[in-house]
Amino acid sequence: MTIRSFLAALAVTTALSFPALAHAGQVKLSTNLRDYGGNPAFLAYYVTDASGKYAGSLWMAGGRTRYYRHLSGWYQATGGNAGEVNGVTGASVGSGRSLDISLDLTDALFDAGYQLHIDAAVEDMRESPDEIVIPLTSANAGKTVQGRRYIADFTFSR
């Protein structure tokens, strides 16, 4: 089983609230947005492998597929395939608000060169691909990183 399909399976089980699988642990992603004063932001959470290749999507905040092309990093990686976020889609996040997501992620994702990316986009405002890029390492867990434009800070914890 490739990492990618394994992730996708995980993503679906998360959405359907299936019991956690073996070798998987709950990971919490906390994102706080700045008060950038605009419409709610679309956020795409996805993972690339050690060679920089797209490995899978974790979460999509924002329901309207028509706007996904403005999440340009994610869009390039997936070719805009909305199927990649099937079942792991939620509402867009308002200016100054925060988003907490809990996912069951396989342990194999950590300390193996994978990186988590977050792309952000807001209507009528600058697109912000790779707003956050953070290697998925044990050392980075619980560490707060700052975003550039829309995301004030982001933390993942296992």
């Binding site: 309207r64 869009y75 390039q76």
Partner: peptide, 16 residues
């Protein structure tokens, strides 16, 4: 109609 996706899509971005 366009917002709700009832109209044809625009052209895809070029291959990176």
């Amino acid at each position: 109609a366009s917002t709700f996706g009832y109209l044809p899509d625009g052209a895809a971005s070029p291959e990176f």
